[in-house]
Amino acid sequence: MKILVCISKTPDTTAKIAFADNNTKFAADGVQWIINPYDEWYALVRAIELKEADAATVIHLVTVGLADCDPIIRKALALGGDEAIRINADSHDSYYIASQIANVAKEGNYELVFTGKETIDYNGSSIGGMVAELLDLPYVSLATKFTLTGTSAEIIREIEGGEETDTVQLSVVVSCQKGMAEQRIPNMKGIMGARSKPLKVVEPSAVDAFTAIASFDLPPAKAGVKLVSPDNPEELVRLLHEEAKVI
């Protein structure tokens, strides 16, 4: 059983969002980088749990990014990945990234490809579906539970207003979210071991991007809160009805 987990790097959830170079680039100065939470907490940890339940499972990690991704890849290895592949390219185009991942996936013949639900910086929610289409595999998005029975998987996924239980034959691409697993913290043994685990760097294959970010904007600042006295909450209801016109 071979699992490929897609790992991306994002700014820490509390990072200040600002832009540089005439609003064409994210201002990365002083930003702390983390593994995208969906990739780490849910996709990777569930893959590790599957491996713990089956000695024959291997977990490969794939990241499309430059050398500044190596620290977060090492952390993912410390948590329990066996081997990592970094495709040495910097892109925010989902199709470009998905194509690189699909190439790795094809070569490695993985039964399972896990992605996170979305990246918390570019919010594409696209890579998993694109990789699945490139590989002509089924894609189950927004999974909250994943269990294996032989060569088929039972997956619970979120749908609008509820959930759905799916069964599917491997191989399959799954995007993972809350519910799949619990966050883990790497231990000392994992951190030491990660140093000697393979991190292979490969050059990207030539792919034309479909999209390009022209610029960024910040939303206009809020006018400020209008406070109502706690002795007169009726006034709040009046304001929402007459001024904001939302109730």
Partner: peptide, 10 residues
Amino acid sequence: VFSGKAFANV
């Protein structure tokens, strides 16, 4: 982008 904290023009 950035979970509602900014916009990108793509």
